[in-house]
């Protein structure tokens, strides 16, 4: 049965839609079109005049080795965070799915990191892993590792991956837990009677049945790493050392705000916009389908 509200007035529905339309236009379409327009302009160093240059900004961008490096960095960063945060979340969720004492409290605690602002999460992690101040750095150095995320690009990346993962695990955990609870108990029991042990049961029954959730979370996590880790990167490494942890999004900021290259920065935004549209399309195409298996 479909329920519909009936309006006698023709204008009322439009009035009700107006606030949402206004927000969408002002905060999404206007900046987006500004970015597209700006990506075709070249501004002089003092910001006094700008000139239409067509695709010159894009050409310059794809001539920069730093841009490709940022792509690779983003790829590595998102792959690492996606893998780590999904597998950790799945491990935690499958444990939480068992009837545990204090299970409710345990679940609540697991959700907290999601509520922490990215920049604050970043500061938290840099305090723990700072080469001289960090309380975790001491033991690492004591083990003979010359730990220094300020100078060593690999160390910096590890630290970023850890902080970004820590924040995203909560979200993935919630979805995995819901996914696990949606698997009928009798299916698991049938598998137990059919003679499959807990590990085999997990990989042949539970994991395949979770695949829609897993796919959804992969897309969501990639979007998260691409766009929402800005705060963490800015707080932990600032894109350094020597631009080695600069992701695509961070480069937009670095080039535009710090470098003053508004046209180049806008061109990068437009490319990112295309990426996020593609990811959303994938998500709608596959994830919105109810049954995956």
């Amino acid at each position: 049965m479909e329920k519909r509200a009936l309006f006698s007035s023709k204008t009322l529905p439009y009035m009700l839609l107006l606030p949402q339309m206004a927000i969408t236009l002002i905060f999404f379409y206007w900046p987006a079109s500004q970015a597209i327009w700006q990506s075709f302009l070249l501004e002089d160093a003092f910001g006094l005049s700008s000139e239409f240059v067509g695709f010159e900004n894009y050409r310059a961008l794809f001539g920069q080795p730093e841009y490709y490096r940022a792509m690779v960095t983003t790829g590595v960063f998102s792959a690492a965070v996606a893998f780590l945060s999904l597998s950790l979340a799945l491990l935690l969720a499958s444990q939480a799915d068992k009837q545990l004492r204090f299970g409710q409290g345990y679940k609540t605690l697991l959700i907290w990191p999601y509520a922490v602002a990215p920049a604050i999460a970043g500061v938290l992690w840099i305090f723990m892993f700072h080469p001289t101040l960090g309380m975790v750095s001491g033991p690492i150095r004591a083990m003979g590792v010359n730990w220094n995320p300020m100078l060593n690009a690999n160390h910096a990346m590890i630290l970023l991956v850890l902080s970004a993962t820590w924040k995203q695990v909560s979200y993935n955990f919630l979805f995995f837990l819901a996914g696990l609870q949606a698997i009928p108990k009798s299916v698991i029991e049938a598998a137990a009677i059919d003679g499959s042990g807990p590990m085999r049961r997990f990989w042949t029954i539970i994991f395949p049945l979770l695949s829609p959730t897993t796919f959804f979370l992969i897309v969501v996590t990639i979007v998260y790493v691409f766009f929402e880790t800005f705060g963490i990167i800015d707080a932990v490494t600032g894109g350094g050392p020597a631009g080695q942890t600069t992701t695509l999004v961070y480069k937009v900021y670095a080039d535009g705000r710090l470098g003053g290259d508004l046209g180049g920065s806008a061109a990068q935004s437009v490319i990112l916009m295309v990426i996020v549209i593609a990811l959303t399309a994938i998500q709608f195409r596959y994830v919105e389908r109810k049954v995956q298996y």
Partner: peptide, 13 residues
């Protein structure tokens, strides 16, 4: 033993 469940409990995938 083998068991037949009320909701069949077939493996959907």
């Amino acid at each position: 033993i083998a068991m037949v469940f009320q909701n069949y409990a077939l493996y959907p995938h």
